[in-house]
Amino acid sequence: MPSSITLAVSTVIFALRPHPETRHPVLWLPLVRRVRSPHKGLWALPGGPLGTTEDLAASARRNLHETTHLTPRYLEQLYAFGRPDRSEDRTVSIVYWALVRPDVASEGVETENVRWFLADSLPELAFDHSQIVEYALWRLRNKMEYSRIATALLGETFTLSDLREVHEAVLERRLDPANFRRQVESTGEVVPTDEFRTGGRHRPARLYRHNHSIELADNGPLTGR
Score class of each variant (00 low, 15 high):
residue 2 P to A: 11
residue 40 K to P: 02
residue 175 L to E: 05
residue 84 P to H: 08
residue 73 R to F: 01
residue 35 V to W: 08
residue 224 G to Q: 02
residue 202 H to C: 09
residue 168 E to W: 04
residue 98 A to H: 00
residue 55 D to C: 12
residue 132 I to M: 12
residue 119 A to F: 03
residue 215 E to T: 05
residue 204 P to S: 04
residue 33 R to I: 03
residue 104 V to I: 13
residue 93 S to M: 11
residue 48 G to M: 00
residue 212 H to D: 15
residue 38 P to K: 04
residue 10 S to N: 10
residue 223 T to W: 11
residue 80 A to D: 15
residue 69 H to R: 15
residue 50 L to Q: 09
residue 129 H to I: 07
residue 154 L to E: 03
residue 171 L to Y: 01
residue 118 L to V: 07
residue 126 A to M: 03
residue 43 W to T: 02
residue 63 N to I: 06
residue 213 S to R: 09
residue 15 A to D: 01
residue 106 S to E: 13
residue 161 S to K: 15
residue 135 Y to C: 01
residue 191 V to S: 09
residue 23 R to Y: 12
residue 102 P to F: 02
residue 158 F to C: 03
residue 112 E to P: 01
residue 49 P to F: 06
residue 98 A to F: 00
residue 40 K to E: 15
residue 126 A to R: 00
residue 29 L to N: 03
residue 99 L to H: 01
residue 211 N to M: 07
residue 124 E to M: 05
residue 76 E to C: 12
residue 170 V to Q: 00
residue 2 P to E: 11
residue 210 H to C: 15
residue 50 L to V: 07
residue 122 L to V: 09
residue 94 I to V: 14
residue 19 H to G: 09
residue 149 I to N: 04
residue 49 P to G: 03
residue 69 H to I: 10
residue 91 T to L: 11
residue 161 S to V: 12
residue 211 N to S: 12
residue 173 R to W: 03
residue 117 F to Y: 02
residue 10 S to I: 01
residue 67 T to F: 05
residue 137 L to I: 05
residue 20 P to C: 02
residue 177 P to D: 10
residue 130 S to F: 00
residue 153 L to H: 04
residue 175 L to F: 04
residue 70 L to T: 09
residue 45 L to A: 00
residue 1 M to V: 08
residue 156 E to N: 04
residue 69 H to S: 14
residue 18 P to I: 05
residue 8 A to C: 13
residue 160 L to V: 03
residue 23 R to E: 13
residue 134 E to R: 15
residue 48 G to Y: 00
residue 106 S to W: 06
residue 171 L to I: 05
residue 20 P to N: 05
residue 5 I to E: 15
residue 200 G to D: 07
residue 209 R to H: 04
residue 7 L to R: 08
residue 143 K to V: 06
residue 118 L to Y: 04
residue 90 R to G: 09
residue 218 D to M: 07
residue 58 A to N: 09
residue 48 G to F: 01
residue 77 Q to V: 10
residue 151 T to N: 06
residue 58 A to C: 10
residue 137 L to G: 01
residue 74 Y to W: 08
residue 16 L to W: 02
residue 76 E to A: 07
residue 144 M to T: 09
residue 7 L to D: 11
residue 41 G to M: 08
residue 117 F to G: 04
residue 4 S to G: 09
residue 63 N to R: 13
residue 64 L to I: 09
residue 196 F to I: 05
residue 209 R to P: 06
residue 106 S to N: 07
residue 87 S to V: 02
residue 113 N to I: 03
residue 1 M to A: 11
residue 94 I to T: 04
